[in-house]
Design a protein around this nucleic acid. Structure first.
Lengths: 216, 216
DNA sequence: TAGATTGTTAATCGATTAACAATC
DNA sequence: TAGATTGTTAATCGATTAACAATC
């Protein structure tokens, strides 16, 4: 087993997907899988799966394969999903509310501790038992509650300023849903959910498949 | 100018981002940009920007650069954003409602024509003036209204069945928010918004930046 | 025209796939 | 043990970067 210093982002992006499939196998009561069976399931080549996993350690057993629950746990630990994270949501609009209501995060260790807004009509509301607070109080709140993650559900114009405030207050990660690219100090991780970008590439691919049809 | 047959997905994924920056430049009244200035702005290398654009045509002018609005329009057309798309949303939960309420899509040519649900308590409601209808009626509706895109906001267990039905009814694209990988006929494009996968890779990166700090 | 900047080819870099020795 | 399948090295493929001739 050889542990590498720098693991490419392409590998990291595949881990949550591997984990999802392992969870399904677990539910079905399957407790062993080979890289080639896993390849059939996921669509990744067996070679790539083994290569990816061996970035982190030798989790398999020659002649046998991988233990489904063992591998599930390993990947969870690699991703840091054995830990808990405290989150705040900024922006109590549709998207902020949808995320606050999504109990899934809570179940997997991502705890929404508060929602922040500038719109006075929304302040004081409760969404899924989480209080909507005045944005003015955010720095104090993040500091005193040791918040790990800020979720940005604001307009694109407010996003960078909100990000700056969250970083100043001490979050370690930003989950950005605004359609802009956020700048942060190097020690703060950013993950973007660029929803409209995604819709735009769907539009592209739809017109491409159309072209293929036309040629037939 | 040389037009390639097959353009890599990595290129396509960058186009919406290029387009966003061009829109901002346009708003600021800047009407000309060189690849190296655009590189400073976006973080992509000037070489990559020119390489990417030349997959589709020679949009620049030697010695001058690129026309901001010209390039914006070209990229919009490449993505197919000069067209209109009719969408239906399946699932009127938090996420489905958030998308239905997001007027942005409408402004950019993606028109939400209906929302479908199995929960009888939600059927008949109006969300942002869009009717929530019985899921039983979806095939008929998609067929008779020439719906282009199905947006899947259901649970992961229902997602594939919903996808099959939408494909059968004739959509050309699926925008999938359920945390599963959807299978479709080759002529139906799929774009995934795997929200929890994104959160999981954020968790990974947060723990990595932490390690760097520890080493200091 | 001279200067600037593109379009495009060539070189490099990184990621994926293939092959196979190690080993359970 | 023999068969199976991993871990890992080597080969290939593709994507990014560098370089420069074309040209506005």
């Amino acid at each position: 087993m050889k542990r590498q210093t720098k693991i490419s982002n392409a590998v990291i992006k595949r881990l949550p997907r591997y984990r999802r499939y392992l969870r399904e196998l677990q539910k079905k009561g399957i407790d062993k899988i080979s890289s080639s069976e896993f390849s059939d399931l996921t669509g990744y080549t067996a070679s790539q799966i083994r290569q990816d996993l061996n970035n982190f350690g030798g989790f398999g057993q020659q002649g046998y394969g991988y233990s489904v629950s063992g591998l599930y746990n390993e990947i969870s630990a690699i991703l840091g999903l054995d830990k808990q994270y405290k989150m705040v949501i900024v922006g109590a609009g549709n998207l902020g509310q949808a995320i606050a209501n999504h109990t899934y995060y809570y179940k997997t260790g991502f705890i929404v501790c508060g929602i922040f807004e500038i719109n006075p009509r929304l302040i004081g509301m409760k969404i899924n038992d989480i209080e909507v607070m005045d944005y003015d109080r955010i720095v104090e709140f993040v500091e005193s509650n040791d918040i790990d993650i800020g979720v940005i559900c604001t307009t694109k114009d407010a996003a960078q300023e909100v990000a700056d405030k969250l970083c100043f207050a001490g979050v370690r990660g930003l989950w950005n849903f605004a359609p802009v690219d956020i700048e942060t100090p190097t020690h703060v991780a950013v993950e973007n959910m660029h929803i409209s970008d995604s819709l735009h590439s769907l539009a592209y691919h739809m017109n491409r498949t159309r072209e293929h049809e036309d040629k037939k």
